[in-house]
Design a protein around this nucleic acid. Structure first.
Lengths: 234, 234
DNA sequence: GGAAAAAACTGACTTGAAGCAATTATTTTT
DNA sequence: AAAAATAATTGCTTCAAGTCAGTTTTTTCC
């Protein structure tokens, strides 16, 4: 067919951190319904919010904190995505076919999670088309981010994957070129699909090359342009 | 927390092939609206239905055929999923934020695709909650399948990945233990994240081990139980 | 504040899987 | 039906990246 204009690379950044508001789209009765059928729970750093395979009884709204959404099997771990505050988690289970949670969630920092009864949430989806439409948009946005990560982890080598994740953390999560990382090196490994040792080696290499500065948990991106090039060329 | 019952492995099968009906949920006026604002197009084997980056103007309903949904960049290819007939494609672009298509689609066999005006589709989503709810379920089902593939491709080695894909093709796509494969070895590579040569070597190995029988494009699974074990143990 | 545990790091070694180049088989085209 | 093009296959070589084992640093918790 005919030539299409070139678009940006597939993996610009892929960690979930946007938040279209959804609560505002509800009527006041509906809001009240949510309020009545939800509770807000505090989790300490490192705690498990929910485990894959458990029955899905709630939709989670992360009011405060930072969490990982991950899969584990045997000793293999894969972090699907990170969520920051004001995001909805566990939407996959609104589908009755998925009555079990398809992933686990645990916290990196102290967090507050509002747990919303899933039946109420479903009811609202079925009665309020605007709300439902917004949720579709949230799901789609998330899916296309997952595609980006999928591409990154399957098609790029270590340099590219690490550059990807560093850029994401900076742009999406911490919104700053320097940040204190609450994730361990092992977590970075689960996020990039590489071994802990490789993460360490690669980060040292980035440091030696003047791409980043780093003292243990504190990280600063020094040369974003070059990191982007590394991300692009895999 | 308390111990949850063990669930099945993450990657049972991950190719998209279920179809909840959605058309029936529309009112007769809505159906008419769809009919008026859609056309059915025939594609020959190997043709491109749409390319990543193009403006998303339609939702696609695959009336007949087999297609791949894929990402390409430089010489890297990744097949996200395969679709069989009676499935909706391109739902990611109902989100106005994504006015460009996030992936490309091309056919493996002669196919017929109904192209539905995206504005009409959006309108229906916003006015018909049951329809919208059904679409959410479709999206969710798809997402959890993508997670499975994501895990498979990032955490398993070649044996496991090939076993995964052979089982999927058999269970979901062809619904038979023996089938004529319309995909090339290179496509199997793009589907499993391995090189064409590795696909060939691995399939030969499976054949020598009595797991499958194979003559060029025709494949038969001989020992499904063992394939499942290989899939499970990566 | 000191002991214990957990992370972070380093170097040596091994290997899974990709890349390359050449050959054979299939399919398409004329 | 022959020629050309595409796909499948094989063997050889290379290297990216994981594993293992040991050391140092940092964090946690009595």
């Amino acid at each position: 067919m005919n030539r299409t204009t070139e678009t940006k690379g597939i993996t610009q950044c892929s960690i979930f951190d946007f938040n279209l508001s959804w609560y505002e789209l509800l009527t006041s009765e509906e809001k009240m319904l949510i309020d009545e059928h939800s509770v807000s729970i505090n989790f300490k750093k490192g705690e498990t919010v929910c485990k894959r395979g458990a029955f899905a009884s709630h939709i989670y709204f992360l009011e405060e904190g930072l969490v990982k959404v991950y899969l584990e099997e045997r000793n293999k771990n894969l972090i699907l995505t990170l969520f920051t505050k004001n995001n909805l988690l566990g939407l996959s289970s609104v589908f009755e076919g998925n009555n079990k949670l398809p992933y686990s969630v645990s916290t990196y920092t102290d967090s507050r999670v509002r747990m919303i009864d899933i039946h109420i949430f479903r009811q609202l989806l079925q009665q309020n088309p605007e709300f439902s439409y917004r949720i579709i948009n949230l799901l789609n946005e998330k899916t296309s981010q997952i595609y980006g990560r999928f591409f990154s982890l399957t098609q790029k080598q270590l340099h590219g994957r690490l550059a990807d994740i560093l850029l994401c953390l900076s742009n999406r999560i911490f919104k700053s070129k320097s940040f204190e990382l609450p994730l361990s090196r092992a977590d970075l490994g689960d996020l990039t699909g590489m071994s802990t040792e490789s993460v360490i080696r690669m980060m040292k290499e980035f440091k030696d090359d003047g791409l980043i500065d780093m003292h243990c948990k504190s990280i600063e991106l020094l040369d974003v342009a070059r990191l982007e090039r590394i991300s692009e060329f895999g």
